[in-house]
Amino acid sequence: MEPETKKRRGMESDPDWWDFLPVLSDEMSDEVPVLDAYAAPITDKRQTSRLVKDLSVVHPLADLQHIKRVRARRDEKEPHALEVLVCLVSDVLTRPQRPTLIDLLSSKDFNVKGLGEPFLVRIPARAPLTRPQFERASRHWPTSFHEDKRVTLGLKGQLFTSGQKAKFQEYMTAAVEAARAGREEGMEAVGAAIIDPKSGQILAVGHDLSRDHPLQHAAMVCIDLVAWGQGGGVYRYEKHPACRYTASDPQLSSGASEEGVQPYICTGYELYITREPCVMCAMALVHSRISRVFYGTSSPDGALGTKYKIHCQKGLNHHFQVYQGVMRQTCEALTRPR
């Protein structure tokens, strides 16, 4: 192997050196969409609470509960201190070039005392789900935000301790070794491992076998190996010594209920895989009820972040967490032609 790879591996053997990120749903990773709206300066501060009350009757903004009705002025040079959201542009039937308060507040008896002439603003169309979304959305107009601390830490790469990362590395190393063994057999260099996070046991290690069977991708192999460990299983792996399984210890097992009933297939288990699974494998993981997936490097038709996000696909009855970038460079090096 070339020395460069060795050097990289050397660095990656320090679990704090590599970093990885959660693969979040589009809703969580895209920009929060914005809506056009009209705001107006509050020229008489004492009218603020009355104006907010009256405006919420005329333009209630029922679907925009996250929006704060009043904000501090954005331009320091303005004489007024506060600005209030009047209505959405879509609330106004006629759209003159520069609408006046009268245009926006068609209700004859609206008391416009203390309200200046309206101007255009943009407001976040829905509540932000992550801190980066919150920070960007707030630049348009203030919004409420219920922070999920785990997501915030995850996005900063600070969710896991060094000890946890060392464990993840151990599991991914098993997957990498399987990938190399598969490559020696002329298979695609993709390896995977399924573990039970409760016991720390590696339940199955496998690699791609698609040269012999077009559907035997590494994740499919591991799913079947777990089945063997549970007294089921379909394919035989004698010719592939790097594909192996251990029966899960029922005493330590993750999904087990109090009655000691075997968990449903992969409930509570985690998959470590060197390359992002394809759509067949990703959906197989949904069917198997996997709880978390860690992968090294993306793949062009990948279904856990690249082409699809099957793990958080709307309409499916099971979702799971996905993290990418575990030992990325080692995993990338696997598929590079030697």
Binding site: M220, I223, D224, A227, Q230, G231, G232, G233, V234, I265, C266, A284, H287, S288, R289
Partner: peptide, 9 residues
């Protein structure tokens, strides 16, 4: 054959 093989695929 999911039940007998314990393989959800």
């Amino acid at each position: 054959e999911v039940n007998e093989t314990k393989n959800a695929t």
